[in-house]
């Protein structure tokens, strides 16, 4: 719209795209807050079937390492983009995508074990219900994040991540940090407190 208006707070928190992303993330906090509150309410309520002790802590820690690492790499990527170093941006950005994908692989391995070895599905008992919902929605958000990262990468490589689009990478990195943050809560509640 009005370019001078935008330029004026290009680096401030009141820039509309940043405000929009922040308020969207607040709504996501409310969403995951609800899921986690429900999870907490049902801790220890499971009477039949597999209980949380079937969860694999080592696998969860491995996944956590991947995600925490990806938060750093995405930060470096965004930084490189701002310093106009496209090569480094692409490198860090790609590494973030790989770390995110690795996390999904870890989750897939864990779910496979839970389903095949322990017979735990979403329909088995209240633990299965809440566990798959919380972890599943987190994984879904992660997948959306990966998709967004691929789109940004595509725009950058075709030279279209310029002008008003330049802020896109930063916003996606915010979303990525948020998804990582949610995982820290999920990990603490599901794997540490609830197990």
């Amino acid at each position: 719209m009005n370019s001078s208006h935008h330029a004026e707070h290009a680096n401030s928190l009141t820039e509309p795209h940043r405000v929009g992303m922040l308020s969207f993330l607040v709504s996501e906090v409310a969403f995951f807050g609800t899921l986690l509150a429900v999870y907490i309410a049902y801790i220890g309520q499971t009477t039949t079937g597999p209980k949380p002790d079937v969860l694999s802590l080592p696998l969860a820690i491995l996944g956590t390492v991947f995600l925490v690492a990806s938060s750093f790499t995405v930060h470096f990527a965004d930084h490189a983009l701002k310093l106009a170093k496209p090569f480094w941006f692409r490198g860090w950005w790609l590494l973030t995508i790989i770390f995110g994908a690795m996390f999904l692989v870890v989750t897939a391995i864990e779910w496979k074990g839970l389903i095949e070895e322990h017979g735990l599905t979403i329909a088995t008992n209240i633990f299965g219900t809440t566990y798959y919902t919380v972890v599943g929605f987190h994984a879904a958000h992660l997948t959306v994040g990966l998709l967004a990262m691929l789109i940004i990468l595509g725009l950058e490589c075709s030279g279209q991540l310029t002008g008003k689009n330049a802020i896109g990478a930063e916003l996606v990195s915010w979303y990525w940090h948020f998804v990582d943050g949610v995982w820290i809560f999920v990990f603490t509640i599901v794997y540490l407190i609830g197990r």
């Binding site: 607040v26 409310a30 969403f31």
Partner: peptide, 9 residues
């Protein structure tokens, strides 16, 4: 932003 997502959940 704060109240609709819990309903969605």
């Amino acid at each position: 932003v704060l109240a609709i997502p819990p309903l969605s959940a």
